[in-house]
């Protein structure tokens, strides 16, 4: 008798909580998915449908908008610029970030804690604050309006993440594995290439992709520091008021999709970086 009452009570209190929980999940998912879904529909609709109302809920799989997008003057160059800048950013942030992550995890040196803090502090300065001095500096040194110059700025944005991700990767590899390799005939370098590198390669790839995405999505520095060699984000921003609606949708879609795919591919390492246990 008391059992039945207790379980009834339990169900009563649990039901609203469960309802709230599920609605919250649905709401959050919708928050993210609905805009992306509309983006998808509009991208895959003919330019006429995009401007019409009401909108269909099922994409028509018309490639008109995308074709128009591809044909729009300068857009392919902008796309190419984006890829080049993001690629350079990826290479530079790993080339600089991974050794820093390794040093942080393997060596004790004075100021190590401060160094880690400083790495994070690089994110404390808003880019708009830095943009003007940077632009002046770049014009003086001739780096303005070059893919390399922009990649440098993007690298500074990506490096904290590259360092933190690789730091946690290297820390996850017991030093004994390297020591064992040393006693088995390796130098520090061969132990690194034969033991450490194969173990962290997936993680390095992930943090490289993450750097790529950071650069790919960055718009402010790109808009300020380039004129002729605009990246896709800067190009779309510049033409926002003049370009037709379907071009904006197609452009937005082209921007979002690679970022989404990449982030999904590296989600495990992002969780690891933020200390959230995955699975």
């Amino acid at each position: 008798m008391t059992d039945a009452v207790a379980s009834d009570l339990g169900a009563d209190t649990r039901k609203p909580a469960r309802f709230l929980y599920i609605s919250a999940v649905v709401l959050l998912c919708a928050w993210v998915i609905v805009p992306i879904y509309f983006l998808l529909i509009n991208t895959l609709s003919s330019p006429e449908t995009v401007t019409s109302f009401p909108k269909p809920f099922i994409p028509e799989f018309d490639l008109g908008s995308l074709t128009f997008f591809a044909g729009f003057a300068g857009i392919l160059t902008a796309l190419k610029n984006s890829v080049v800048v993001a690629g350079l950013t990826m290479i530079m942030s790993i080339a600089i970030g991974a050794p820093a992550g390794y040093a942080l995890s393997r060596f004790d040196f004075p100021g190590k804690g401060l160094f880690r803090l400083l790495i994070l502090l690089t994110r404390a300065f808003p880019l708009p604050l830095l943009a003007l001095p940077l632009a002046v500096l770049f014009i003086r040194t001739g780096l303005d309006d070059t893919a390399f110059g922009l990649a440098l700025v993007h690298t500074t944005l990506a490096i904290p993440f590259a360092v933190l991700i690789t730091f946690s990767l290297f820390s996850g590899i017991p030093i004994e594995l390297e020591e064992a390799a040393w006693t088995l005939g390796c130098t520090r370098l061969t132990a690194f290439t034969k033991v450490v590198l194969p173990l962290i390669l997936p993680g390095i790839t992930a943090s490289a992709i993450f750097a790529f995405v950071i650069s790919w999505n960055e718009v402010f520095a790109a808009a300020v520091l380039t004129i002729e060699n605009r990246t896709l984000t800067a190009f779309l921003l510049q033409n926002l008021d003049t370009s037709p609606l379907h071009l904006k949708f197609a452009g937005g879609f082209i921007l979002v999709v690679p970022a989404l795919i990449f982030i999904f591919a590296v989600r495990k390492y992002l969780f690891a970086m933020w200390g959230i246990a995955n699975r």
Binding site: P174, L177, A180, T183, T187
Partner: peptide, 16 residues
């Protein structure tokens, strides 16, 4: 270590 003619077994095995 590699030039000393030694081999070592670690407490946590250190199997690659």
């Amino acid at each position: 270590p590699k030039d000393r003619g030694i081999a070592m077994v670690f407490q946590n095995y250190a199997v690659f």
